[in-house]
Amino acid sequence: MTAQMVLSFSIWLALVVLCVSFLMTVWRVIKGPTLPDRVVALDMLTGIVIGFIALIAIRTGFTLYIDIAISLGLVGFLATVAFARFVLSRGGREGPPGETAKAEMIKALAAPVPETRRSPRKKPATGTGPAVRRKAKK
């Protein structure tokens, strides 16, 4: 059993293990009761995909994949920071655990349309336009 055979077998084993952990993380994304749980799981998902990219880089021998992995890590970091800001600005609006998204959607659909326009302004008896001013001069 040469070293290359050991390497190829361990890459296969690592692919299988990464697949299992990917599926478990997806399960947390689906199940996670709150939004930050899902964000943490998505961050973890990015890390696992970086691991997949590294394994493919070893198998094919293209070292260019390292740059792709680094840029994916950068995107994942920025996405997590943006989600943290979103969690902060959204506040703790959370329904009963389990049907959060559905409850949010129902609440958003059932809420009355906010009144944006103010009540119509009464027209002043005497305008201030140029024609009125001209008339007043006369």
Partner: peptide, 29 residues
Amino acid sequence: IDGFLALLTAFLVLSGAGFALAAAIGLNR
């Protein structure tokens, strides 16, 4: 030296995948 590098790579790959699995288990448990 090639054989040594291949064995080191195999060790790193397996331990990295093991850490990822541990993280996924912790995320669920």
